[in-house]
């Protein structure tokens, strides 16, 4: 069985600061990480590999530096890695991105595709479902449990007020949430071989896509304006025993006529 896992390299938002003058992200010196939900996706693929046997290929679209995320995935136990990189891919919205990823999936071959629910930098949750639409295969989003049977999966999908259990035939695409599993650490065995493995690089020619369908030109989304919400004034910490704190808070709320 061939499992593809789509991952994205994102800035570690725990470390991101906003430039107060320009209102933009300060990306300098911010470490890049594998998007957290994508790590859950990779973990589930590796678990199926261990229980059922499978070949796990991680795929990412990004600049050459995204190689680091692929090496990390190899160090967690992925078998192969593919980097989709081309200047023409720059500026892509979710539609143009998912088209590139779907084409790559067709070229590489797959029985099952895992993706994270959403990336912490864009938060759209659109790319996974769009890949499935491009490929015309079933998709299940918000996956919190997977049981692999022969040729099909029993999948539990989280809903706001409960869950649904679905049976799905492969090939299919699942988008994963953090409740699905606890991603493993990189391990020393794979760390010390991950740079011996070749990372397959594919560009726009390798994927047979017309240039007007990728990157900025292939992106129907037009950003009108982006802005940062004004910062709130600094809060006040009332560091006294709870009952005293409650009294102080009540007084303050009364003072501003909230209660």
């Amino acid at each position: 069985m061939n499992i593809l896992v789509f991952i994205k390299q994102v800035p570690d938002t725990n470390e991101v600061k906003i430039d107060p003058k320009t209102g933009t992200l300060i990306r300098e010196g911010v470490p890049s990480i594998i998007n957290p939900d994508d790590k859950n996706a990779l973990e589930e693929a590796l678990k199926i590999k261990e229980s059922k046997g499978a070949r796990v290929t991680v795929v990412t679209m990004g600049p050459p530096q995204a190689e680091k995320a692929l090496r990390e995935a190899l160090s967690m136990g992925a078998d192969e890695a593919v980097l989709l990189t081309d200047r023409a891919f720059a500026g892509a919205d979710t539609w143009a991105t998912s088209l590139v990823l779907a084409k790559a999936a067709e070229k590489i071959g797959y029985d099952l595709i895992f993706a994270g629910r959403q990336a912490i930098d864009g938060d759209t949750a659109q790319v996974g479902p769009e890949i499935a639409e491009h490929l015309n295969i079933p998709q299940i989003t918000y996956v919190e449990k997977v049981e692999a049977l022969d040729g099909k999966l029993i999948v539990r999908r989280a809903l706001e007020d409960g869950y649904e259990v679905l049976s799905v035939n492969m090939p299919c695409l699942l988008t994963c949430i953090k409740e699905l599993n606890q991603p493993r650490y990189m391990n020393m065995y794979d760390i010390f071989t991950c740079y011996e493995k070749e990372i397959k690089v594919m560009n726009i020619k390798d994927l047979d896509i017309e240039s007007e369908r990728v990157g900025l030109s292939g992106s129907p989304t037009k950003v009108k304006k982006s802005f940062t919400k004004g910062p709130k004034s600094q809060g006040e910490i009332i560091d006294v025993p709870a009952h005293e704190a409650a009294n102080i808070v009540c007084e303050k709320l009364k003072f501003v006529h909230i209660i």
Partner: peptide, 14 residues
């Protein structure tokens, strides 16, 4: 080295 950097990241998390 590249491997040592990955190992350090892994160790810090662990």
């Amino acid at each position: 080295t590249r491997e040592q950097k990955l190992a350090k990241e892994m160790l810090e998390k662990f």
